[in-house]
Design a protein around this nucleic acid. Structure first.
Ligand code: ZN
Ligand code: ZN
Ligand code: ZN
Ligand code: ZN
Lengths: 181, 181
DNA sequence: GTCAATTGTGTTATACCATAACAAAACTAA
DNA sequence: TTAGTTTTGTTATGGTATAACACAATTGAC
């Protein structure tokens, strides 16, 4: 089994009931698709997705839980590469510039972008239990924000929306725990 | 003139045209009102708004630009008080617990709450030019987020919405600069 | 292939943001 | 007053991010 799955907290053994959304998925495919998209986007733009940058992106995609810069640094070192903070921050800056990752502000952490191949204004739903951050591109939310900005005479260049709570899967887990207690 | 106005970037000399919103206001009143609200809320709750905490709140309300913890620390020291980081972080924690300030995640900075006397789910519109962060409590935005959460089976405990762009006043300033160039 | 120019990476040092742990002081309620 | 509680001071440390400069790899012209 691919080592990349080791802390993928969505992939769990046998959920007893089907979750409403975001059910267990083929995360190996997730990663492969993200890397393929990254490769083609960078090629098309003349941006250089070097081995280092590609490896950092792989480590970011290790799970759907946002990962901190120093954790990524440790993973690089576990790969046998010599690395210091600027190494990882430069790679993260490149990946963010290319729209391949996002920074989760409330966690000081980074996560792969689910919509790298198109412009979007994403929102994140972040589980306080398992840590998974789900990216959605909800145009209705963005429109409401844009409308309010308009009323204020405010010209929007971007937004950061992070919703905190408990994800669908963790609620099921809590019910199980609760019914046992 | 009150020294507290010294870096209040909304209060500027003679805007040539009236802004659509957020026009120059009596910031001394702003501060006084915030402190009065803080006092009565804390009294009602049995929370102790000590001199230190009150002074920190005053420094936070110095302007509508979010201010960093270490800047607040410097201001405390300028007051003649001996202070180290825990001093300011404990005061900030108290003020945040009481809902008197908010943390602006994209800036690692803190700002006074405009709606301390009632429960709310605020959004911030942050100007990349002048730094001013305007708090709004737009229930329509919150409703859209809640609706999307519902679709995901996600139970919301809170959200952080920070919109970046150029504020109304700074656009006018840019026009002036532009027409001169 | 060689070369110069550009871009990317390694390395050291440092700045900025935040908290742990414990001691001293101030406040509260008998 | 005195004991108990809360707040503040103090020292040390952990976590996040960048500046500055040297070296290596890549690119594109020749
Ligand atoms: Zn995205
Ligand atoms: Zn969860
Ligand atoms: Zn004001
Ligand atoms: Zn502005």
């Amino acid at each position: 089994m691919n080592a990349v799955l080791k802390d993928f907290s969505v992939a769990r053994p046998k959920p007893r009931t089907a979750p409403r959304a975001n059910q267990r998925h083929d995360h190996v495919h997730c990663i492969a698709a993200a890397l393929a998209t990254a490769s083609s986007l960078c090629a098309a733009r003349g941006a250089r997705l070097t081995k280092l940058r590609r490896r950092v992106l792989e480590h970011v995609w290790n799970s759907h839980v946002p990962v901190g810069a120093y954790e990524l640094l440790n993973r690089l070192r576990a790969d046998g590469r010599r690395a210091a903070p600027p190494t990882i921050y430069r790679a993260l800056a490149f990946l963010a510039d290319e729209g391949l990752i996002h920074r989760i502000e409330t966690r000081n952490a980074y996560i792969g972008c689910d919509f790298a191949d198109r412009p979007h204004q994403a929102q994140y739903f972040i589980c306080e239990q398992c840590g998974v951050a789900a990216e959605v591109d909800a145009s209705d939310i963005h429109r409401r924000i844009a409308a309010r900005a308009d009323e204020l005479g405010f010209v929007v260049s971007g937004h950061n929306v992070e919703v905190l709570g408990i994800c669908c899967l963790c609620q099921q887990r809590r019910v199980h725990v609760g019914s046992r207690a």
